[in-house]
Design a protein around this nucleic acid. Structure first.
Lengths: 150, 150
DNA sequence: CATTTTTAGTTGTAATTGCAACTAAAAATG
DNA sequence: CATTTTTAGTTGCAATTACAACTAAAAATG
């Protein structure tokens, strides 16, 4: 059984560090782009769901969102009925940065898929979605304190 | 063109945080397993090459190796002919931890590929290797200070 | 409907991460 | 073979990241 963990890690770290370098141009620091795109695409999302979407610790997400709020890129509004939650929205400034992130990500994606015909593109996408589903369950399981046995 | 960056990021972060939690059992802190496996499989490797293998900043790798050396898991030896380089080796303790990491990684890999038949396994591996090759070039390019135009 | 459990969010603390800026050795160049 | 460039490694910052431990509201339970 061939190892796919290493190439996936290498690809993810490569593209992430490229993005972090390139998004300095729009005054984003390390990792911030992840949260901004997700909030723009899911306005009103709450912290816990955002953290689960990105697969990052909720305390990490909390501090990232706090900082993006201080920088005027995101804002949090309290809910009228549920006093516990804070809904997260992009500000005007946040919405203006979004297209730049999208364009960069689309470019990186096209670099990643260079030389792939349409069938191969569809293939890798489908296979990766299945891997994602497989892995998400274990992430929930381990992050919530359970022990895998192997 | 479907986006493969996000699933790759999600898969990578999920498996990395699972590993980090599970390797506390062998007293490894966040990320250390990455360096230890590579050094065990490439004894005598130098820092710069190690960083490039993992796709991590060389200063990050430097500090990780320093700490693993302090903890008696890796050791660095000076080269007889080249006074500039330091070759990195696993210690006895490092070699003893290695099988545990391998077993965990193999298990995570089998979870990731759950439901994949042999053909699909070979397929995703081949496609990912091509993506890795595509992406590595841009990583080198951007990390060495160049600007991509898109 | 009182009580237990789960959900959502926060702060303390301690670590990794990485960009700048820097040495010094090695390799390449004219 | 002197000098320029590249390679290999380090330290000073300043930031992200995440495990613990904690509130408090909401939901589930008996």
């Amino acid at each position: 059984m061939e190892d796919i963990l290493r190439p996936i890690g290498i690809i993810a770290r490569s593209l992430d560090s490229i993005s972090n370098i390139e998004f300095k141009e729009v005054d984003l620091t390390r990792g911030q782009y992840l949260y901004l795109v997700r909030v723009c695409e899911n306005p009103g999302i709450i912290l816990e769901r955002l953290a689960n979407l990105i697969k990052v610790d909720k305390t990490t997400a909390a501090r990232a969102v706090q900082k993006l709020e201080r920088n005027g890129i995101l804002e949090r509004r309290e809910d009228a009925v549920n006093k516990k939650i804070k809904k997260i929205y992009p500000t005007k400034k946040g919405k203006e940065i979004y297209p730049f992130i999208k364009k960069e990500n689309e470019y990186s994606n096209s670099v990643a898929l260079k030389g792939f015909n349409e069938e191969e593109q569809a293939q890798i996408y489908d296979l990766l979605m299945r891997v994602q589903n497989n892995v998400e369950d274990d992430w929930d399981y381990v992050k919530s304190g359970h022990k895998r046995s192997y």
